[in-house]
Design a protein around this nucleic acid. Structure first.
Length: 495
RNA sequence: GGCGGCAUGGCCAAGUGGUAAGGCAGAGGAUUGCAAAUCCUUUACCCCCAGUUCGAAUCUGGGUGCCGCCUCCA
């Protein structure tokens, strides 16, 4: 069984075969850096991070390129509002992008070109299109002529005659008069007075949105790449236009596979800046949602389907992650970190039937991701793998000595190693628990809390449960939760 | 008007021909002075109608509801 992906271009799920054996080139449409990223961005980049990790896990050498759009009307608007510059707004939001995505354990792209640093390639591409008769200039603007591309609309499955011009209600004033066809789009926009601009053969101005991606793909990865990624809202017009430009220039297919992720919805509506119903990644993390909870929340749904963002669903993901994280923590502590890198071959001494069981977990997990990134099914494997780990830990904590034989220990370690490896393919890594301690006699910790716990233990010993419960309530009011364990041990965590 | 997608238990969500993964919540149990935490067990015939088939959540046709895109968008 090999990887199959749903290709927007063919509207089918088809076997993925890279252009060059063993190598995969990927271009992912990045963000326009005018504001913080929201949950919709998080979903997109988490999902594509899993695609990338899975390809790597399968042994491919992946080259992953993602751009920053740092020239844009919204950035200019934001800069004007702040009284700062386009550069200042871009730099700040790029830094914030890295902070947020790093927190979510999203691997950084191998290369991250920016529009402002790719102007030579952009101008060259526009000139080439112009020379080939696919572009025309008008009053300082340059437009792409969609009619020269007989297959225009092939990605989004559109027939231009059937489209309602301006159905989105966002036609730019004045531009219509300059265009030969309503669906022609700007490759270069002449600068209005006072706007930042860059020189060009067509006069000072800045590149259109679509052309920058075409130029950066070509510059970084060549005429034809294996996979092009983006949100479903980019299919039309952005990706359609990218195809038109790139293919008109090169004469070769731009990308073999086009993958698009579904939107994040809020109350049944798409999360977006313009609707104002967005939640930033930052706000979510600051509210106490852990990065891995967010990752689990996203990966529980299939990447092409809409994902409804609700407090309930997020809370469910948090509970689910708590359990999975506990198992990952147990696994991480149980195995030798030095040996953890090679888990493909189980340690010696594992009974064949256990080895077979683990192999089948690995098989199921891989098959799930191979099946158009079925992360939901892959997660199910993780949860099944995790359960015996937690069970065993529970029994050991309760002092069930009969379970602590060496063979069993070895099996659990092998299981734990596999769990860590597979979770890692989904980018899920153990998160440290809230700070706390174990209040056994003579153990160091927060002296204040330890004293209160000692007092409670004393009260319990004297069967003065009223006092014991009062102490427990007082600590709880301070955000400290007590967990009694057998043997008179009381753990505590800050919640 | 055009193109595309979705409808599975209280909630989220896999499953695309052979009698429904997983998570959350709930219930019961173990444990506890009582709790909490933890562990164990447990809960569905798949929007409606018609059809194909030995057999359909899964295929076909029709219907209903919801969502995305049609030059800001991940």
């Amino acid at each position: 069984m090999s990887l199959r992906l749903t290709n927007t271009l063919t509207r089918r799920t088809e076997p993925f075969v890279p252009l060059e054996p063993g190598k995969v080139s990927i271009y992912c449409c990045g963000v326009t850096v005018y504001d913080l990223c929201h949950l919709g961005h998080a979903r997109s980049y988490i999902v594509w991070d899993v695609l990338r990790r899975h390809l790597q896990w399968r042994g491919y050498a992946v080259t992953f390129v993602q751009n920053f759009t740092d020239i844009d009307d919204k950035i200019l608007k934001r800069a004007a509002e702040e009284g700062s510059s386009m550069e200042a707004v871009s730099e700040r939001n790029i830094a914030d992008y890295f902070t947020d995505m790093d927190a979510l354990n999203i691997q950084r792209a191998d290369r991250m070109p920016r529009a402002t640093l790719s102007l030579d390639g952009i101008r060259a591409l526009i000139a080439e299109l112009e020379a080939k008769g696919a572009a025309y200039s008008a009053d300082g603007d340059v437009y792409f002529a969609v009619m020269v591309k007989a297959d225009y609309g092939k990605l989004s499955g559109r027939d231009l005659d059937q489209q309602q011009e301006g159905a989105s209600g966002r036609l730019a004033d004045g531009e219509e008069a300059r265009k030969h066809h309503p669906f022609d789009f700007a490759l270069w926009k002449g600068a209005k007075p006072g706007e930042p601009s860059f020189p060009s053969p067509w006069g000072p101005g800045r590149p259109g949105w679509h052309i920058e991606c075409s130029a950066m793909v070509r510059q970084e990865l060549g005429d034809t790449i294996d996979i092009h990624l983006g949100g479903a809202d980019l299919i039309f017009p952005h990706h359609e236009n990218e195809i038109a430009q790139s293919e008109a220039a090169s004469g070769h297919p731009l990308a073999r596979f086009w993958l698009h992720n579904g939107m994040v919805n809020v109350g049944g509506e798409k999360m977006s800046k313009s609707l104002g119903n967005f939640t930033t990644i930052r706000a979510l993390l600051e509210s106490g949602v852990s990065p891995m909870t967010l990752r689990l929340f996203v990966l529980q749904a299939h990447y092409r389907k809409p994902l409804d963002f609700t407090a309930e669903a997020l809370a469910a993901a948090a509970s689910g992650w708590k359990g999975l994280n506990a198992a990952l923590g147990l696994a991480a502590r149980a195995i030798d970190p030095a040996a953890a890198t090679d888990t493909a071959s189980p340690p010696a001494g594992i009974p064949p039937e256990v080895e077979g069981e683990l192999a089948s977990f690995r098989e199921r997990f891989g098959a799930a991701l191979d099946d158009d990134l079925n992360t939901s099914a892959a997660l199910a494997v993780l949860f099944e793998l995790a359960r015996p780990l937690r069970s065993q830990a529970h029994r050991q904590q309760r002092g069930d000595a009969a379970t602590a034989d060496a063979a069993r220990e070895l099996n659990l370690r092998a299981r734990g190693a596999l769990l860590l490896e597979l979770a890692g393919v989904l980018g899920l890594i153990p998160e440290s628990l809230p700070t706390g301690g174990s209040a056994t006699a003579g153990e160091a910790g927060d002296p204040d809390v330890e004293a209160a716990i000692a007092a409670r233990r004393q009260a319990k010993a004297e069967r003065d449960f009223a006092t014991a419960d009062r102490i427990r309530d007082e600590l709880r009011a301070r955000g400290i939760e007590l967990i009694d364990r057998p043997g008179g041990i009381t753990d505590w965590i800050r919640s």
